[in-house]
Amino acid sequence: MQHRHLQFGHGFRVVLGDDRSQAAQLTLAPAETEGGPDNRHHGADQWLYVVSGTGAAIVEGERVELRDGTLVLIPRGDQHEIRNTGDTPLKTLNLYVPPAYTDAGEELPAGGK
């Protein structure tokens, strides 16, 4: 069993995982964005859960408003961007199936490690 108490700092950080799945936390400051036209995870689905804050997820051109408790599934290969549209940090927990990043936060090629 693995476990971790999450303490959201700034930016993106892989926090837990194994060969089949992975968890990472992301904190964006007000007006900050992550992702964009070149942001796709070719080898992994991404589940994004909003812990706190407000924002928007733009997935394949479709906008979804984000707020505390929102859960979004971003299918593998879909272009996406996450934006903080609020006045406080946007904190998200992101699950990748299978893992999408190395422990250092570098993106894995499709097909894994």
Rank of each mutant, 00 (worst) to 15 (best):
H10V: 02
T70Q: 04
G69H: 08
R83L: 14
T70C: 07
Q46A: 14
V51W: 05
G53T: 07
Q25G: 11
Q25L: 12
L90A: 06
I74N: 05
E65F: 03
R63F: 01
L71N: 11
G55A: 07
R63W: 00
R20A: 09
R76G: 10
A57K: 02
Y49K: 00
Q25M: 10
V51T: 05
P30N: 06
V51D: 08
L48G: 09
L71A: 15
P89H: 13
G35I: 00
R40I: 11
L48T: 15
W47I: 12
T88P: 00
V72Q: 15
V50K: 04
A24I: 07
T85I: 03
H80V: 07
N84E: 13
N84L: 11
L71T: 14
I58L: 13
I82W: 03
A24W: 07
D38I: 00
T85R: 05
D19T: 08
G77A: 05
V15P: 06
K91V: 11
G77P: 07
G35S: 01
S52Q: 15
E65V: 10
T88K: 13
D18E: 08
Q79V: 15
H41K: 07
D19I: 00
I58D: 13
Q22T: 11
R83S: 12
T54F: 02
E60M: 03
A44D: 06
V14S: 04
L28N: 01
T33S: 14
L71D: 09
V72R: 13
P75C: 07
Q79L: 06
G43R: 06
